[in-house]
Write a protein that binds this DNA or RNA. Sequence first.
DNA 1: GACTCTATCTCGGTA
DNA 2: TACCGAGGTAGAGTC
Lengths: 220, 220
Amino acid sequence: MRVVIARCRVTYAGRLSATLPSGVRLLMVKADGCVAIHADVGAYKPLNWMTAPNHLVEEPGRWVVTNAKGECLTIDLEEVLSDQAHAMEDSAGLVKDGVELALRDLLAAAPDAIGPDLEFVQREYPTPIGPVDLLFRGADGQMLAVEVKRKGEIDGVEQLARYIEQLDHDPRLRPVRGILAATRVAPQAQVLAAERGLGWVEVDYEQLKGERAELTLFEL
Amino acid sequence: MRVVIARCRVTYAGRLSATLPSGVRLLMVKADGCVAIHADVGAYKPLNWMTAPNHLVEEPGRWVVTNAKGECLTIDLEEVLSDQAHAMEDSAGLVKDGVELALRDLLAAAPDAIGPDLEFVQREYPTPIGPVDLLFRGADGQMLAVEVKRKGEIDGVEQLARYIEQLDHDPRLRPVRGILAATRVAPQAQVLAAERGLGWVEVDYEQLKGERAELTLFEL
DNA sequence: GACTCTATCTCGGTA
DNA sequence: TACCGAGGTAGAGTC
């Protein structure tokens, strides 16, 4: 990785146009060719960037980065304060835990958090437009599709509505009820769910995890 | 901004749990306290990070970053290869052009680009599920809701349909027509719009901007 | 390659 | 502050 500290101006022309006036910034050029320009605020997002694959041409006082889509990032270097390169061998990647997937599995094992007398049928039940997170059968025999989100928003309601529409095409399943399950359901999502004839439920992730741990302990 | 190149291990506990095994990486500590850990691939996203405001405690061989939400980022430094700091005065920010907001404002001022004899009523007209970009009144008195997108795709049509559904609940507005306005409307979006009884229009951003400039000049 | 969906999403706006 | 929508979303997985 090459790290340059420089006073520079930047322009980007591509999906939008953006210009960055003169200032001291950090330029990163990574092993895969990615270029990022960071200011001294904001941990996450670069001011400007160009992802790989791209083509970097280094002229005196100017870098020009282009890609196949016709996007162009131009960096005018007014003063280079530091320029160093470091070898970084590939290292094992990040290991994550605790997102939507875990919530889905917890709910599959504990349907009571969604509603009474539900029998788990399948995870990732396939439809032509993508898999439904969870499918249950109610005490009355009616099917229930559940869309799981960490945060339930309008998108999640639309997604669930599309799945229900697909599932209702299958005479063996029809009519299918739908519930959006999330640690939090936004007010707008609640309104839209009601409008679409869908249900929603807020579930407590920590509590589910605790119950699961207890159950595991008991089963030992 | 402080830039450290080091062999390190990282753990994050907060919105999820994540661990990062030993490897050489770039650590950025910005003036606002933000911390980011970058690998040698991917221009954009750090492997781990902590946004401001936070609290960084530097012990020998270990940094611990915590914030008010109880998130915690721990960096175990195994070997520091470089450690430098650079002053970066605040500089003027990024200037963007060509986005949805500008397009919306141009259309509010130039309804003719959407259709004949439209009277501008309101920007961001509120509904229970979010604001409609633009609301106009036609010559016949009928209301017209316009959803503005840079690129008109299926989700833009869906969004517009949801708004119309809400607006039609209001007897003072009903019946409301809907149009998707974008610099380009995808064929699938055109089909879906027709299906939903909605209109669509492709508008020329550069031309609108030009007209606006002319108008401003004229008004001088 | 195109499409879909998630994200410690970030970021900006607003009530 | 919380909530909501846009993003040059990026990045991962699937078909």
